[in-house]
Design a protein around this nucleic acid. Sequence first.
RNA 1: GGUCCCGUCGUCUAACGGUUAGGACACCAGAUUUUCAAUCUGGUAACCAGGGUUCAACUCCCUGCGGGAUCACCA
Length: 488
Amino acid sequence: MSSTPVRVRFAPSPTGFLHIGGVRTALYNYLLAKQTGGTFILRLEDTDRERFVVEGVEQIVQALDWFGLKPDEGFWEGEETGHVGPYVQSKRLPEYEKYVQQLVDAGLAYKSVIGTAEYEDMRKAAQIAKTAFVYRRSMESKSTNPDGKFPIRLDIEACMKHLKSRSIDWEAHDGVAQQIDPATIEDFVLLKADEFPTYNFANVVDDHLMEITHILRGNEFISSTPKHAVLFDVLGWKRPIWVHLPLIIGSDGAKLSKRHGDTDALQYRDKGYLPEAMINYLAMLGWNDGTEQEIFTADELVEKFSLDRIQKSPAKFDFERLDWMNGIYIREKLTEDEYVERATVELKASDVLRDDTSSELIRSAVLLERERIKVFSELPDFVSFFFKRPKVTKDLLTTKVAPETVKTMLEQSAAALDSVDKNIKGHDAIEKALRDLVIEHDYKSGEVFSSIRIAITGRTTAPGLFETINVLGVEETRTRIQAAVARL
RNA sequence: GGUCCCGUCGUCUAACGGUUAGGACACCAGAUUUUCAAUCUGGUAACCAGGGUUCAACUCCCUGCGGGAUCACCA
């Protein structure tokens, strides 16, 4: 466990919705911050004006809030806290301009006047020739439109000369060193023609100004790290520690994306997953503490999380395992009241309740389903019969037993329920009455119980029969049985 | 194609030179049982391949193969 307070940031871009991979990145940042008593910062990287999605900003905040990953500092619901703001990049343009100017003045960056079409042509030519295309200042052509707006590029060769180095060296948190040949890195754009910075530049400037100590980000950024390293060096800034997280991939092995249904992290809330279960699952996807423990509270994760036990290889997102874990949280980690409350919300949002359905009925119905559901979205369908009389068909009633027999069994059952001692609470009295019936007529208990089950629930699988009758009430049960008999 | 990363049951993973390669999800079987679950017990199932190094390799090295990421005035 690290002990020096750390400053980490989660820096999403509102070009779409936050997805599950982003949530895990945020989580690992969060865990490291909490563990060291450090600071978890939220920064908005909105430098892409073209693809900016207004609702994206709101969704990011909502999602982080639902997962319980509130930042200590930075952007939050339009408000900001912290001493190194603003935390929205579009509000930091003067900062970027300042450092770009500094680089230009030092001869390490230049205004790139090459036309877009010309640049594209060169790239295509290189592609056809199957050679690597690395753009250099020496390839600059005279612009046909000298008054136009142009981007500023970093001059890699000048930078290397300035740094008196022949290679770009950087190492990750685990000490694994990388030695990159600068010849493979082109003169990338720092400031776009619209005067907004690129990701590569804004990222470095902000991480430095915001005093970020550790950068935990997705593995897809690993190949842009040498660019960042050069920038830190050339600006004379201390480099942070880079930690690249293995990708979360879909069942086909490709990076998790919309194709796999991973469009929006909030969809897990809507499907009825518990945030605590999601956090637990996500934490284990790419990290473990080396023991066989797999259920962790948030506090335990904070305590035990460690950078050096982060997995290297990508992990497939396994919905079955997530469902299993969510099931554990539903039946073991939630208190009964918490469960009922959460379940009630789900039912009220559905159309299965009647206007006069009492909260007592909801409570007892929902409790009977607790160990059957994996996600709350299954609940309305499972319990609907408690509140509204089900449609019972003759076909369903007679799939296994002959119609006449079913009819007789049901009539006798209804009668047997009359003899239930109403002074005895619970389902024991009901069970006794029905079992006595089975013995008396030498029936197969499965046939009788199954028939009653179908008659009162309209389905072949349901919670325990006697508990169900008990919740429904003997009167209602008899009414339903009689309605079923009428169909035979 | 260039550069880089990765490679243990179907899936998530343990192992840090010496284990019958362990756990979990899923799956199968059994127990329980009024159905479905839940629970308990048991089972099937993996070191990408080939070379080295070593008394000993899943562990170290090399090559190959396979998968992925990235090559924008997107992040």
